[in-house]
Nucleic acid binder design. Structure first.
Lengths: 110, 110
DNA sequence: GTTATATATTAGCTAGGGCTAATATAATAT
DNA sequence: ATATTATATTAGCCCTAGCTAATATATAAC
């Protein structure tokens, strides 16, 4: 499954948003996702597996709980591909400054 | 259709690679895609429509030909979402330097 | 006008992704 | 050991994205 396929699902994107901020137990994720999407524990668990397998999420065992956190590895291919594209049309870009500013912001953002 | 759905298809990604380097007529794109994926002119045309509608591609009429080029607009949501995620786990990232370097490279790349 | 070329659109089929329901596993508590 | 809590797995269903085949449109050439 390609990296972009992983990100094409709204439940998985929301899950990544959650675990990008702080580590979360599976159960916590299930609660939030169920509230927002109305799907089963099983469905969420299946999404978590996909995120693990694709290198977007890491798991840590804590007793019976499984704590999920973001794994940057999965995003590498995605960002590389996007950067590759920009390498070409970026040169003709009207506002190269936009790009520069984005870079600065992502570094200085509190 | 969400921006990530657009990028989740390999034919569309390849098409974006093509038109990111230089403008291409529909026919040229069809040739390349047919050679690599073995799908019909119709299928390619349908993908081009999706890319247009989602703001990833622009068209210019030149006689009977339709010349496609990259439209940066479509990528904004994608990059914004990725940046947003990184804003959190980026702080804990072992190599923030990587991020800085990427920024520099994308600007100075020949 | 007719023909040829270039591209787009539509109807209909199909495979696969995402879901539920049921079940299995794994750790903790009693 | 048994029950309880927390999570994962599996089988099977359904819907939709992406395809083909056929057809329509639009420009250019004759």
């Amino acid at each position: 499954m390609h990296a972009f396929d992983i990100l094409s699902d709204p439940v998985r994107r929301r899950t990544l948003e959650l675990i990008s901020q702080k580590e979360h137990a599976s159960g916590e994720i299930v609660m939030v996702i169920q509230a927002e999407f109305g799907i089963s524990q099983s469905a969420v668990s299946q999404h978590l597996r996909i995120l693990r397998d694709a290198g977007f999420a890491k798991v840590r065992k804590e007793g019976a709980k499984r704590c999920y956190s973001i794994d940057p590895a999965g995003f590498e291919d995605v960002q590389t591909w996007l950067d590759q594209l920009r390498r070409y049309w970026g040169s003709k870009m009207e506002s190269l400054a936009t790009e520069v500013e984005r870079g600065k912001r992502s570094l200085t953002a509190k």
